[in-house]
Design a protein around this nucleic acid. Structure first.
Length: 477
RNA sequence: GGCGCCGUCGCCAAGUGGUAAGGCAGAGGUCUGCAAAACCUCCAUCCCCGGUUCAAAUCCGGGCGGCGCCUCCA
C-alpha cells in the first residue's frame, strides 16, 4: 500500500510497525453543531483508507476517532442553550453516529471524548512531562507550550516564522504569550466555565492536547502508524500535536500523516460552519437524494483533490449507481435463476474478472485511487452486461462476477449501502410482488391498459418496474 | 506578504515521459406490446506562451485563472 505522507510530502510504502496491526488516529468533530457533508467527505475518505488497509492490504486495524467536547464554541453554545456542556455535546455525538451509519462508515474501535476523566488525566500527565522537559511556561494561570524549545517545530506544516501573515489576529487569547505561535496547553477558566483540576491547577484543556494524549493512551504509545484528518488541521492543530507528543516523549509521534482535501460548495468556497454555507447529511436526504448517492459523490474524487460539490453531482452519482446496481441485479437473477441452463463457465469472462480484480486492487494500493478503481469496475460492468445480453453468462460465471463486485464494495461500501436502502421500500415488498403478479396476468390477456396502470401506480409510489426476459424486476426510484 | 495545491470532452473525473480510463449528459441504431434497462456506433489532444526530449497532458521557465493554509475549522 502506497500512501502520501504529509510529513515527507511524498508517496511512501506503508506497513504497520507492530503485529500487522495499523494503529490509526483520526481527528473527529468538535461537537458544537451537527457535522456537515464537508466533514463527512473527510470521514468517508478515511473510511475508505481503513477498508483498503483492512481488505486490500490485509492488515488488522485499531482506529481511534475523537470527539472534541470542550472548547470555546461548545462552552458558549451550551451556555446559550441553557444546557450542561456534557448534555449539549451528547446530542451532536448522537447526530454524528446517525450520519455515520447513514453513510455506511465502518465503526472504529474507539470514540473517546476529551472530557472523559481518564483522558483528562492523561492530558495532565503529558503537560507535566512537558513541564519537566522545560517546554512550558505559565501566564495568568494558563500553561503554554514554548515552541522555541523544540528545534524542529514546524516540520509538518513547513511554515517558518516569517510566514506569519502580517497583521493577522495571531493573539486571540486574552493571555500574554512569549511568541505568537506559542499555544495553550491548559487554559485557566473563568469561574462560570467547566473546570477540572487533576494536577496542573484548575482549568480546561487546550484544543491540541487531547489528541496527543488520547492517541498515545489508546494506541499503546509512540510512534503510532497513521494520524489523519482534514487538510485544515495541518496547521496549527497537527503541528502542535507533534510538538506536545514529541516534547513529552522524545519519540516520533506518528509515522504517517494523511490529510484529506476540502469539499467546496457550488462555485468554489469551502463548506464551513463559520461561512454559513453548510449542509448536513440529513439536509441532503431531505432534498430527496439518497445517502448512497452522497457517498458515491464523496468517493468519486481523489481524496487529495478538492471536491466541488453541487446538487447536480448527486444526480450524476445517482445514475452511475443505478447502472452498477442494475448489473448486480441482473447477475443475481442469473445466479439464483431457475432457468439457469447449467454449468458451462466462460474462461474469457473469468480472465476479465481476474484482470479487473487485480487492476482494482492496484489502483487502491496506489494512494487510494478510488476514481481509477471505479473506472475499472465500470469497464467490467460493460463486459458483464454484454455477456448477459448475449446469454453467455451462466450461474457459475455469475457467482464469480458477483464475488468480484463484493470485493470491490468492501472498499467502496456503496453498493451495500444502496442495498440496505432498498431493503426498506415505502411500499411493502409483498404488495409489490402481488401487483407484479396482477400485472403479469393483465399482460398475458393483453390488457395493456391495466398493466400500465399498475406500473404507473407503483412509479408514483417510488417503485420502478422493468420487464426482462427473466421476468419483471423492481427497484426503488 | 509567505507557503502550497489545482486548471484534461457540455458536466464530473483517472492518467504524470511513449502518443487521452471511466461515469453523467447528447446523437444514431438494435431489442421491446409500451416503457425501462442493456448493447453497438459517434462525441477531447489535455488554460496560454516558450523550452528540454526521438517522444510531453505528463519535465523546466514565464503568464493567466481557481482554491486552500498562514486565525476557530474536516
Amino acid at each position: 500500500m502506497r500512501l502520501y505522507n504529509t510529513l515527507t510530502r511524498q508517496e511512501e510504502e506503508f506497513a504497520p510497525l507492530r503485529d500487522e496491526t495499523v494503529r490509526m488516529y483520526t481527528c473527529g468533530l468538535t461537537v458544537y453543531a451537527r457535522g456537515h457533508i464537508g466533514n463527512f467527505r473527510t470521514f468517508v475518505a478515511l473510511d475508505v483508507l481503513r477498508r483498503a488497509l483492512e481488505y486490500v492490504a490485509g492488515f488488522r486495524i485499531r482506529q481511534v476517532m475523537n470527539f472534541t467536547d470542550v472548547d470555546d464554541r461548545t462552552i458558549a453554545e451550551s451556555r446559550a442553550a441553557g444546557v450542561p456542556l456534557r448534555e449539549y455535546t451528547d446530542q451532536y455525538i448522537a447526530a454524528f453516529r446517525e450520519d455515520a451509519a447513514t453513510l455506511g462508515l465502518e465503526p472504529v474501535e474507539d470514540y473517546p471524548r476529551a472530557t472523559d476523566e481518564e483522558n483528562l488525566r492523561s492530558m495532565v500527565e503529558m503537560i507535566q512531562a512537558l513541564e519537566a522537559n522545560g517546554h512550558t511556561y505559565t501566564s495568568d494561570g494558563s500553561i503554554y507550550f514554548k515552541i522555541a524549545t523544540l528545534p524542529d517545530y514546524g516540520k509538518l506544516a513547513r511554515l517558518d516564522h516569517e510566514g506569519i501573515k502580517p497583521g493577522a489576529r495571531i493573539d486571540a487569547d486574552r493571555y500574554a504569550k512569549d511568541d505568537a505561535r506559542d499555544f495553550v496547553l491548559w487554559k485557566a477558566t473563568a469561574s462560570d466555565e467547566p473546570t477540572w483540576d487533576f494536577g496542573v491547577g484548575p482549568g480546561r484543556p487546550g484544543w491540541h492536547i487531547e489528541c496527543s494524549a488520547m492517541a498515545l493512551r489508546l494506541l499503546d504509545g509512540a510512534p503510532i502508524d497513521i494520524h489523519a484528518g482534514g487538510v485544515d488541521l495541518v496547521f496549527p492543530h497537527h503541528e502542535n500535536e507533534i510538538a506536545q507528543a514529541e516534547g513529552a516523549t522524545g519519540e516520533t509521534f506518528s509515522r504517517f500523516w494523511v490529510h484529506v482535501e476540502h469539499l467546496l460548495f457550488g462555485e468554489g468556497v469551502k463548506m464551513s460552519k463559520s461561512l454559513g454555507n453548510v449542509f448536513s447529511v440529513q439536509d441532503v436526504l431531505e432534498r430527496g437524494y439518497r445517502a448512497s448517492a452522497l457517498r458515491y459523490v464523496l468517493l468519486s474524487v481523489h481524496y487529495r483533490k478538492q471536491l466541488r460539490f453541487t446538487w447536480g453531482s448527486l444526480d450524476q452519482a445517482e445514475e452511475a449507481l443505478k447502472r452498477l446496481i442494475g448489473c448486480l441485479a441482473r447477475l443475481e437473477g442469473i445466479a439464483g435463476g431457475a432457468d439457469g441452463q447449467g454449468g458451462q463457465a466462460h474462461p474469457a469472462l473469468a480472465d476479465r474478472v481476474e484482470t479487473a480484480r487485480r487492476d482494482f486492487a492496484e489502483k487502491i494500493e496506489q494512494d487510494l485511487n478510488v476514481p481509477g478503481a471505479l473506472g475499472v469496475m465500470f469497464e467490467l460492468v460493460r463486459h458483464v452486461n454484454t455477456a448477459l445480453d448475449d446469454g453467455e453468462l451462466g450461474p457459475p460465471d455469475a457467482a464469480v462476477v458477483k464475488t468480484a463486485f463484493d470485493g470491490f464494495d468492501q472498499v467502496l461500501g456503496v453498493m451495500a449501502l444502496r442495498r440496505a436502502e432498498d431493503a426498506t421500500p415505502a411500499v411493502p415488498v409483498d404488495e409489490i410482488e402481488r401487483l407484479i403478479g396482477e400485472r403479469r396476468a393483465a399482460r398475458a390477456r393483453r390488457d395493456f391498459a391495466a398493466a400500465d396502470a399498475i406500473r404507473d401506480d407503483l412509479v408514483a409510489r417510488g417503485v420502478i418496474l422493468e420487464d426482462t426476459p427473466a421476468g419483471t424486476r423492481w427497484s426503488l426510484k
